[in-house]
Design a protein around this nucleic acid. Structure first.
Length: 191
DNA sequence: TCTAGGATCGGCT
DNA sequence: GCCGATCCTAGAT
């Protein structure tokens, strides 16, 4: 399990290093593990695309102001959940959005949650799909990924992600953020 | 209270 | 490529 130290670093570094790491989710239904292939960095109060922009403090974003290594889960478009990992430290308001991955353990359970007719390549290729595949909801908001009994955590299984396989680009769906929408804070891993 | 709009997805053309 | 679903959240009134 990755320690809190991993998250207590600059958000862009954490985002880059999350590529290739394995996200593990345990539940009554069983264990699911997903190798992360797409993430986005959100840089706190000075980032117009970030939910903590301008120092915003509301019940929804409360967990984003918490300690590094905790989950921030919110609902978008009234129907999809998005999972973020808080970075840097308490009061930073920064996080990494997990946008996609590939199931490597528990694929049958993922398929049961996502739908039997869904193509393998589409099981977790989107933030909403990832949460559905892992059964992550608002109930998991504020969950500590570094605890002894964490039901969501990260593992480094030794897979090396070469720089040549990392693509950087603008973040998705944040056109309202003006110039910040073009900041190259989206990271993708193409093995 | 009321209202606008969203860090998306899947079905349809 | 376009569009509707769906409802919570934040800010305005």
């Amino acid at each position: 399990m990755l320690s809190r130290r991993f998250y207590q670093r600059p958000t862009v570094d954490v985002a880059r290093d999350l590529l290739g790491k394995v996200l593990v989710r345990t539940s009554r239904g069983g264990l699911v593990a997903v190798r992360l292939t797409e993430v986005e960095a959100y840089l706190g109060p000075d980032d117009p695309a970030c939910h903590t922009f301008g120092g915003l403090r509301t019940p929804r974003v409360d967990s984003m102001w918490g300690a590094a290594g905790h989950a921030y889960v919110y609902l978008v478009y009234g129907m999809h959940h998005c999972l973020n990992l808080v970075t840097v430290g308490r009061e930073s308001g920064e996080a990494v959005l997990l946008r996609g991955g590939v199931p490597i353990v528990g694929t049958p359970l993922v398929r049961a949650r996502r739908g039997v007719s869904v193509a393998d390549s589409s099981l977790c290729d989107g933030p909403g799909k990832l949460c559905q595949a892992l059964a992550v909801t608002r109930d998991d908001d504020g969950h500590d990924l570094c605890g002894r009994r964490s039901r969501i955590y990260l593992v480094d299984d030794g897979v090396e992600v070469l720089e040549a396989d990392v693509r950087r680009g603008p973040r998705i769906g944040v056109d309202y953020a003006g110039e910040a929408a073009r900041w190259p804070l989206r990271f993708r891993y193409r093995a």
